[in-house]
């Protein structure tokens, strides 16, 4: 129906209204609105079909099933492995340090004992017998130093080797980051299909946030120990 025809119908409608012909008024009014209504129905139909197709497409996307069935459980496994690797490394390092510290202390202790005698020797206060004793001690100390240094070297090498987790966990975490991005994309798509607005994120004040991570808003956090001390002293600590 073009505008000329519609205008003609509208005039007809006014005429019929003025003459009070109810039956004609209803007939003409429905003829006029017919076009509009069918357009509206068509539009709703089209949108419904599009929505239906989009949802179907989304559900049929093999990536989604793969993400849910394989990759997310995999990612949990991977991250657990990261925890166990970093834990193992920390334990190896701690063990090496715990084994190494007494060795260093032992060396220091013996050196201090000998240096007392050594000072007396330098001040020419040692008898010949004392000197013989000192030389024997020095000989023993040099031997001990060689042994202890070899042992310390071994422990330090253990510490060195225990750092290999960094490379491996780095790779694993990078894979998981990629996965998280993928999931994020899919979720955004889903939100777009459903057309709903994302509600503002509510921060739970009671939730424990853990370590401060640069670039992530975790609420009102302190900036290191100095801030903690300032805050506590402002509270009368």
């Amino acid at each position: 129906m073009d505008s000329g025809e519609r205008l003609a119908l509208a005039r007809e409608l006014v005429q019929q209204l003025e003459s009070g012909n109810e039956a004609e008024v209803t007939r003409i009014a429905s003829m006029l609105s017919e076009g509009v209504e069918s357009k509206l129905f068509m539009e709703v139909g089209r949108l419904t079909r599009e929505l239906h197709e989009a949802i179907n497409e989304f559900l049929l996307d093999p990536r989604i099933t793969e993400l849910a069935r394989v990759e997310i459980p995999d990612a949990s496994e991977r991250l657990s492995y990261v925890i166990s690797m970093t834990e193992k490394s920390a334990n190896t390092t701690l063990s090496a340090v715990e084994a190494g510290l007494p060795l260093a202390d032992d060396l220091g202790c013996q050196a201090r004992a000998i240096s007392v005698q050594w000072e007396r020797f330098c001040n020419r206060e040692l008898s010949v017998d004392d000197f013989r004793e000192l030389s024997r001690e020095l000989g023993g100390f040099l031997e001990l130093t060689a042994t202890r240094s070899k042992q310390l070297h071994g422990h330090l090498t253990d510490v060195l080797m225990a750092q290999d987790f960094q490379d491996l966990t780095g790779q694993i975490i990078r894979q998981v980051i990629t996965l998280v991005h993928d999931v994020e994309d899919k979720l955004v798509q889903l939100v777009r299909i459903s057309g709903s607005k994302l509600p503002e994120k509510q921060k739970d004040a009671k939730k424990l946030e853990g370590p401060v991570i640069p670039g992530i808003d975790q609420g009102d956090t302190v900036n290191g120990q100095d801030d903690v001390d300032d805050l506590l002293s402002s509270l009368g600590f």
Binding site: E209, P211, D220, T221, V222, G224, Q225, L231, L235
Partner: peptide, 25 residues
């Protein structure tokens, strides 16, 4: 602890903590 929100430090102080060290320390 690694917890470093101001309100948490205040909460600990109010609960009667004697000292507060944030990780890493």
């Amino acid at each position: 602890t690694a917890e470093s929100k101001r309100e948490q430090i205040i909460e600990a102080a109010q609960a009667g903590v004697n000292g507060y060290v944030v990780k890493p320390f």
